[in-house]
């Protein structure tokens, strides 16, 4: 951890790098043919498994586990899609027009159109373009993910002060990292924070898309994914 800290110049950022989860693969069922519904089923199954990892990751954010169980639930229920979207966005940065849901599930415009996710695809490309222009690095990515969770604006928070404390700690970590690693642009931290409205907008759109798919009953969704989609109403 100390070696990583020397590199990032901030202990929280180094810790977030260390607790970053391993890659998850989509692992589409090889025994069935590739229909639109199969692609959506694979995507929903991937999201369900990512959610399990995300909940476990959240517990490793410094201070998160000291919040009340109700507040932990409130933050996760509000911000889970923003955290998942940030992951897709970061993985997609090296690709021109593909969304890297997983290394084995890269979706391009035409496929997104045929499964009914073109609108979401376009919004995601806009968000990816913003981060590509900034050349978002991994340290900033892990810090922004934690900030998205802490800044979820949940309506069901019991201890607002504790959440504010968590936000302040993450904000300071980002500022310190930028001061140490991106001296060339004193506005970089602000620029990163200014991407958060589009992230929320994109996450809301994604939730709407998957709620529509859920209502259509076209694909089987696992219980945790359903539970989190329903919590976002």
């Amino acid at each position: 951890c100390c070696q990583v800290s020397k590199k990032t110049g901030n202990q929280i950022v180094s810790h977030l790098l260390l607790v970053e989860p391993d890659k998850i693969f989509a692992m589409a069922d090889p025994t069935t043919s590739d229909t639109d519904d199969k692609v959506l089923t694979t995507l929903c199954d991937l999201a369900d498994r990512e959610l399990v990892v995300l909940i476990s990751w959240a517990k490793h954010i410094p201070g998160f586990s000291t919040l009340s169980l109700g507040d932990q639930m409130g933050l996760l229920q509000s911000a889970w899609m923003e955290v998942l979207i940030l992951g897709v966005v970061f993985r997609s940065l090296p690709y021109d027009e593909g969304l890297v849901y997983a290394d084995d599930l890269i979706m391009e415009r035409e496929q997104c159109r045929t499964v009914g996710l073109l609108d979401l695809y376009c919004t995601l490309l806009q968000l990816i373009a913003k981060y590509r222009k900034l050349q978002l690095d991994k340290e900033e990515f892990v810090t922004l993910k934690a900030m998205a969770l802490a800044n979820s604006d949940s309506m069901n928070i019991e201890n607002i002060e504790a959440i504010q404390n968590l936000q302040d700690i993450l904000h300071e970590a980002l500022q310190e990292y930028e001061k140490n690693r991106h001296l060339e642009d004193p506005h970089r931290g602000g620029k990163l924070l200014m991407t958060l409205p589009l992230l929320r907008q994109t996450a809301n759109k994604a939730v709407q898309c998957f709620r529509r798919i859920m209502a259509e009953g076209r694909v089987t969704m696992h219980k945790l994914f359903l539970e989190m989609l329903e919590a976002k109403v």
């Binding site: 810790h15 399990v52 909940i55 476990s56 517990k59 490793h60 954010i61 410094p62 201070g63 998160f64 586990s65 000291t66 169980l69 109700g70 932990q72 639930m73 996760l76 229920q77 404390n165 700690i169 219980k223 945790l224 539970e227 989190m228 329903e230 919590a231």
Partner: peptide, 20 residues
């Protein structure tokens, strides 16, 4: 909490929380 029982259960699973 009953409505969100999987999230509730996963959060209660033992891990190593990190203090501030």
């Amino acid at each position: 909490k009953e409505k969100h029982k999987i999230l509730h259960r996963l959060l209660q699973d033992s891990t190593s929380p990190v203090d501030l």
